[in-house]
């Protein structure tokens, strides 16, 4: 089967972001960017399915500025076969992204699409579900285990009270949770080889998709800072403070 994996270029998860003083957004100038951690897990799962002989081809797709080619090359170095960049310099919402991905799905006809459960910048957790709706596919969100059984997919999902297993008819959409797998590192020879793998660039217009959004960000501000705390010297002092000062026990 063919697997399509969507990856997003986001600020590196270790970076403590700063809000711009004019409230227009988060300062991303000269900040380290990387592949969204959940997308890394999605690429890893696709590559493992290929190594098991279940997947015949792994295509990675990203939507964003030309700089996102860097993350696509990373995915190619991790084992993907081919990459597609839908180039757009606009900040796109999940619905627009889902519509663009739907156009790619229509073209590529994958049996399985794997996405991360959420991007760590916008924290939306929407794109996979929206893509499933637009394609009319079944969805296995927050997956911690994926098993292909014939024309069916068994997905174990992380839910609030524990784990849930669902069976999905293929083609289907899976979004990855953290515990699905441990992504590998790209080796230097693979990074070199990835430079030669095909990477197509298309535009939203060429895909015939409008990316207009009904959501407007009015301002972005820093969260209210917590007032500085104190260090206590002993358990007795801690209990005394919790009882009499904070009055929480």
């Amino acid at each position: 089967m063919k697997i399509l994996v969507a990856v997003k270029r986001v600020v590196d998860y270790n970076v403590k972001v700063r809000v711009k003083a004019d409230g227009s957004g988060v300062d991303l100038a000269n900040v380290k960017m990387a592949m969204n951690p959940f997308c890394e897990i999605a690429v890893e799962e696709a590559v493992r399915l290929k190594e098991k002989g279940i997947a015949s081809e792994v295509v990675v797709v990203s939507i964003g500025s030309s700089a996102a080619q860097e993350q696509l090359r990373t995915a190619l170095a991790l084992g993907a076969d081919r990459a597609v960049l839908v180039e757009s310099n606009d900040e796109l919402g999940p619905l627009a992204v889902a519509k663009l991905l739907k156009a790619v799905v229509d073209k590529e006809q994958p049996q399985l699409v794997i996405l991360g459960k959420q991007a760590i910048d916008s924290d939306n957790n929407q794109t996979g579900q929206m893509l499933a709706a637009l394609c009319g596919f079944a969805q296995g969100t927050f997956a911690s285990r994926v098993e292909v059984a014939g024309d069916q997919l068994n997905v174990t999902r992380e839910i609030d009270g524990g784990l849930q297993t669902v069976a999905l008819k293929l083609p289907a959409i899976v979004t990855t949770d953290l515990r699905l797998n441990e992504p590998r590192y790209a080796s230097l020879p693979n990074i070199m080889k990835a430079k030669k793998k095909p990477l197509d660039v298309v535009t939203p217009d060429a895909l015939g998709v409008s990316t207009a959004s009904t959501v407007k960000v009015l301002k972005v501000e820093a969260p209210a800072a917590r007032s500085a705390g104190i260090k206590v010297g002993s358990v007795a002092e801690l209990v005394e403070k919790l009882k009499n000062e904070a009055k929480v026990i």
Binding site: G93, P94, L95, A98, D123, N124, N125, Q126, T127, G128, Q129, M130, L131, A132, A133, L134, Q139, T141, F142, R157, E158, I159, D160, S213, T214, V215
Partner: peptide
Amino acid sequence: TTGKNVLPRVAALLDVDQIS
């Protein structure tokens, strides 16, 4: 996890953006 699973699918079926 239930709301997050279902609601974006609803939004896409209605062809509207969702706010999370």
